[in-house]
């Protein structure tokens, strides 16, 4: 103890009086709503994935791209990791317009000047909402909505963090905190001023399975979908991991027995 205090005093002398101001806009710790894919046996909830896809498609995709995800990935056929049948995915893909220029005459637009497009096929990736970063910023007050393909892996707190951002808008700013013009108060975001307008409001989507579309529900569903988008192979990983653990434990048990047996005559 005496040594610790001495070390401390010495330390103080060495340190050049590191002054510091506590930032009071540190983000709140994220909420923990619990996820079906948590834990070593966790799997994605299919119904939540389908609902979450709907929320992404009808709400978030207006601003956020999902560049790294293909339609095919959503298919559960052919050993896929998805949650729609093959024909369903085909129909979903066909509903998207994919940039198709230039055609065989070298034109990139039709007679009216609109860029050429074609219906999507399953091998396509989700098309981005904006043609480039500048267009995205112009539409969003100068802020850039990040691509959401790996968002749950790209933020500390992961799924909990994204869920907290989406459900963290209704809270009132504390007295003395100013929300900057064009920004919104969100205490789960670093600095508390976020450029994303509150994306979800009750009953914003109508779920086919009649689930009540509260903000919490939609947030939980879309975050399940985004977690899948970031790590579509999680279920394989958990399944194979279980087999690998069983094998290794059994192998280690046998190795232990043979080790004891071989060494028995030495001690």
């Amino acid at each position: 103890m005496r040594f610790a205090r001495l070390a401390l005093a010495l330390g103080m002398m060495l340190g050049a009086g590191a002054a510091h101001a506590k930032i009071d806009t540190d983000p709140l710790p994220p909420k923990k709503p619990g996820w079906s894919f948590d834990g070593p046996f966790g799997m994605y909830d299919r119904a939540a994935l389908q609902r979450g896809f709907q929320v992404y498609k009808e709400v978030c995709s207006a601003c956020h791209s999902l560049n790294r995800v293909s339609f095919a990935a959503m298919s559960s056929g052919d050993g896929g990791h998805g949650f729609f049948t093959g024909p369903e995915v085909k129909a979903i893909a066909a509903g998207y317009k994919i940039p198709a220029g230039p055609n065989d005459k070298g034109e990139t637009t039709d007679a009216n000047g609109t860029p050429l497009t074609r219906p999507g096929i399953v091998a396509d990736h989700f098309p981005p909402p904006f043609p480039n970063e500048q267009a995205a910023r112009t539409a969003n007050n100068g802020a850039l909505p990040p691509d959401l393909s790996v968002i749950t892996k790209a933020r500390a707190g992961g799924a909990d963090y994204v869920y907290s951002i989406l459900t963290g808008f209704h809270e009132k700013p504390p007295a003395g905190f100013t929300v900057l013009p064009g920004k919104y108060f969100n205490p789960y975001f670093n600095g508390w001023n976020i450029s994303m307008p509150p994306p979800l409001s009750p009953n914003q989507v109508t779920y086919a399975d009649k689930t009540n579309a509260t903000v919490d529900q939609m947030a939980h569903d879309v975050v399940t979908f985004l977690s899948w988008a970031a790590e579509p192979t999680l279920e394989d990983r958990h399944r194979i991991g279980f087999g690998v653990m069983l094998f290794l434990l059994a192998f280690a048990g046998l190795a232990y027995l043979s080790y004891r047996r071989i060494w028995a005559d030495i001690h």
């Binding site: 070593p40 990983r237 194979i240 290794l248 280690a252 190795a255 080790y259 071989i262």
Partner: peptide, 22 residues
């Protein structure tokens, strides 16, 4: 024999991280 056993213990730890906390 001894090294194999300890190697497997190490690999178990490694597998826990690879499969569950990658």
């Amino acid at each position: 024999a001894k090294d194999l056993f300890y190697l497997l213990l190490f690999v178990i730890l490694y597998a826990v991280v690879v499969f569950y906390l990658p």
